[in-house]
Amino acid sequence: MLLREVAYAKPESLAEALEILAADDGARALAGGQTLINVMKARAGSPDTLVDLSGLDDLKGIELGADGTLELGAMTTYSEIIASSEARARPILGEVCAQIADVQVRNRGTIGGNACTNDPTNHLPPLLAALGARFTIAGRGGEQTVPAEEFFLGVYLTAVGTGELLTKITIPAGRNDGFAAVTLGVDGTCVVSAAASLNGSARLALGCVDAVPVVLSPSSTDPDAVRQAVRDTALDPPSDVHASSDYRRHLAEVLAVRAIEQAQRS
């Protein structure tokens, strides 16, 4: 498919990237391109300028702090997370990244791209929300760090504004996590997903049932309590060819229990 004409910049520094993004409101960041290139083919989006982030070393790499905190550069690919010994400090990360699409997509797709796309069917937004991840956004005026609740704002919409970039995702220490999803084929996009984290208090995040991950804190990990906590959120998920609203509500309860059970075993 021939894309619409587009300008292309490959900045060598974060400052240069932010400058280009701020100068042109039709500019879009190009991370792994595993969503954006297809969006451009379909003309669902037609940026005037692509700002290729692959030359920005500041956005790459995985660091494990002495206290177990993980810092992942936004341009870190799924394959790099899967292969990283540091990322194994939070094993669920590599485990879920290995469930995204296929080898080729995992080799190019990035954690930052997945989060910034905030497609409700993506695996990582609910997972990152459950893990208590924090998102660092850089703009020309400086940087700010926000929790998931303030990062995911709507379908395809995050707190990263025009002229800004997500630079890194910070994940606190912990090991007792779980993820469960009903997907379109093995490793396909999610119909409904649930992520759980039992580090300290129980924290659940449900995906594909609302515009953003629905975060809740069940009073206990007992399956009935978990189901009740999901019911108490009064979900009103969309209906589509893959699942009716009622079926998604049902799946949310089932998958929440499964995610909690995995977190208890891990």
Binding site: K10, L30, G33, I37, S54, Q104, V105, N107, R108
Partner: peptide
């Protein structure tokens, strides 16, 4: 995946990569 090629040792789908990349 019919367009799969190896770029710098990494398997990719060449329909989701720009030539300039």
């Amino acid at each position: 995946g019919a367009c799969s090629v190896i770029v710098d040792g990494t398997l990719v789908k060449s329909c989701m990569l720009l030539a300039v990349q």
